[in-house]
Nucleic acid binder design. Structure first.
Lengths: 346, 346
DNA sequence: ATTAGCATTCTTGAGACCAGAGTGCTAATG
DNA sequence: CATTAGCACTCTGGTCTCAAGAATGCTAAT
């Protein structure tokens, strides 16, 4: 818990220097090293004093009595906050991104590739989540009898997300067509959420009226054909191999990988921290509050939007020792690209 | 390279004992340990002699001069071969499998869950591949205009596999409907392969006749709307966390994880080794021939079929030190279940 | 307000050393 | 003749010690 007054100029400079060299080297940083790299010739002793203050304020920690200092969670937060945000991607990175994403017009494919390219440029784990969620507007639905007892339901959202689901249901194709027609005519453009509740209401009230048609609709509804709920979310996680670094111990690494495989948790994580309203890149330090296995990991993400619609989110997960500046610019670059590419093609 | 005459009874027994205790413990096994666990009271010295023979024959290796012996690739092959195949799953495993797969009628969902349950029961990596490939019969296609320049193509195969693809194309919905009708009427039940070549032929010849209709079809065809090719394959890989064990070194682990993320390679791997014709479980020892990063790993897999149609394959990938008997029964059990569940529901 | 100096603390790597496990060989044994 | 006992030898792995190096905190000097 940080105490004391904010931080003076010199403190600020030293703190960011510590954070930066720690990120670069991974070793606890001591006063001597710092004195050498510091452009104003401050002596180690002076720096020690400042460091002691910073430690008291909760920005630095000591692995053990006579080691250097390591930035605390607070320190990273502070560091990120005072980052100018002025930076551009290297030619290479930009090229790689452009190339991987070139010519994609399909939201889902875009997301899939994005998670990959994110992992490449960040050298960490790239994640994208496509929200199939309630906020998406319905474009239309389509039902098709498959076999004896099976019906295929395809739901297309306005944003081009496609969900299919096989139901156990025995209805003649005629009835299916009628039901699809009914839904498309009445609900095109509605959010899934609104549609579902309105549909529920009508089924309740007008049961008698439409009769056969409504019976079919009801069956489809009950079977979840129209549920664009959590289970419909699509998650891409790539670059797990990047987590294998010497500083992870066995157990932690294992837990980490396990967590990354639990898509549901990942969705919740991004959902919890990436606010749809906020425009820019967001950095969340201290993921262990949500996911214990993610101690010492951070999330750098942004909502993926096309115009004003939020289609999902994209993010990088990496150790606190990540290159914040670089990752942030990369994420933001890709987020903008997402908007641009999918917007113009509509 | 194995030399010498096959193997006598005693050799056989000792070899399997070595393989088994090595699988159990992970340590090189020495004559003393073996003598203790061997039910016929053979002395260490005798065993040493036999072991020397086995080593000459290429079945055993020595990490260093005065360590115990470790089974060679050949030894595993031999071991697996002489496995009786008589074994049944534990109540727990069976229960877990049943539960995870209960009530699923959708091929793809089945596969997704299967890869998960495979990783659970085997404590290794579970993999399933759904072949979207050319052999699948077409049930029907469906095109829908999305936005300005986009068309959604949905292809359903007889087996219930669904593929959707967004194309950049500007055709009115009428034309799309006509094209879909045309294809459905003419090609339902054809294999994708056959359909594509026949379609190509017709487009070539009868260009003039159908005119507008055929023009639409051609455009769709060119855009790959009907391509159920490799890219359409769906791969599920789960349980990567199980690879994190003490005996892996950093680098290898990293490569391994990387390889597992390259779905294309995984598809090829399964494709290469899992022969659609063969009925039963197959064990492939020595994966490094195909994928160098998979040195010391084995594949235990089976084709996933429904009736006579091969829908894909399911497999476990694990270290040579895997519990062969258990994994084999698990894989075979699930493969049978797959057939049974999807067959009856049709 | 800085800095120099110094005693102190703690980590890390290199050797040294020993116990344990295993081998191969030879000679003895039923 | 197939087994086995005995033995010298080899290699690994853990523990210990030791010294070097890096930081620290404090006090005194500038």
């Amino acid at each position: 818990m940080p105490t004391g007054q904010p931080i003076g100029e010199r403190e600020r400079e030293i703190l960011t220097a510590i954070v930066e060299t720690f990120i670069a080297t991974g070793d606890p940083v001591g006063s001597r090293t710092l004195a050498r790299s510091n452009r104003e010739g401050l002596s180690p002793a002076t720096i020690r004093n400042v460091m002691a203050d910073l430690a008291d304020a909760g920005f630095l920690e000591q692995p053990h009595a006579s080691a250097g200092r390591v930035p605390s969670t607070e320190a990273y937060r502070y560091y990120v906050e005072q980052l100018t945000g002025q930076a551009s991607l290297s030619r290479q990175d930009e090229g790689m991104i452009q190339e991987s994403l070139h010519g994609v017009s399909d939201v889902q494919e875009f997301m899939e590739r994005t998670s990959h390219v994110l992992s490449l440029v960040s050298h960490n784990v790239g994640i994208t989540v496509a929200i199939g969620g309630p906020k998406n507007a319905l474009e239309h639905v389509y039902f098709s009898r498959l076999g004896d007892q099976k019906v295929l339901a395809v739901v297309v959202t306005r944003s081009g997300l496609v969900r299919d689901r096989v139901l156990r249901l025995d209805l003649p194709q005629n009835d299916l067509d009628a039901a699809a027609h009914f839904i498309n005519d009445n609900f095109r453009g509605w959010t899934m959420e609104a549609m579902r509740s309105e549909l529920a209401r009508r089924l309740e009230q007008e049961r008698s009226v439409y009769d056969r048609l409504m019976a079919s609709v009801e069956q489809l509804y009950r079977q979840g054909a129209l549920a664009a709920d959590e289970t419909a979310q699509v998650v891409f996680v790539e670059g797990a191999a990047n987590l294998v670094t010497s500083e992870q111990d066995q157990k932690r690494l294992q837990e980490l990988l396990q967590t990354l495989e639990e898509k549901q948790k990942i969705v919740e994580l991004l959902g919890a921290y990436l606010d749809a309203k906020q425009e820019a890149v967001r950095v969340v330090i201290g993921l262990d509050e949500a996911l214990p296995s993610m101690r010492n990991f951070v999330l750098i993400g942004a909502p993926a939007r096309v115009g004003d619609d939020v289609m999902g989110s994209l993010a990088v997960i990496g150790p606190t020792r990540i290159d914040y500046q670089h990752t942030m610019t990369a994420v933001s670059y890709i987020a903008r690209l997402f908007d641009k590419m999918l917007n113009e093609s509509e």
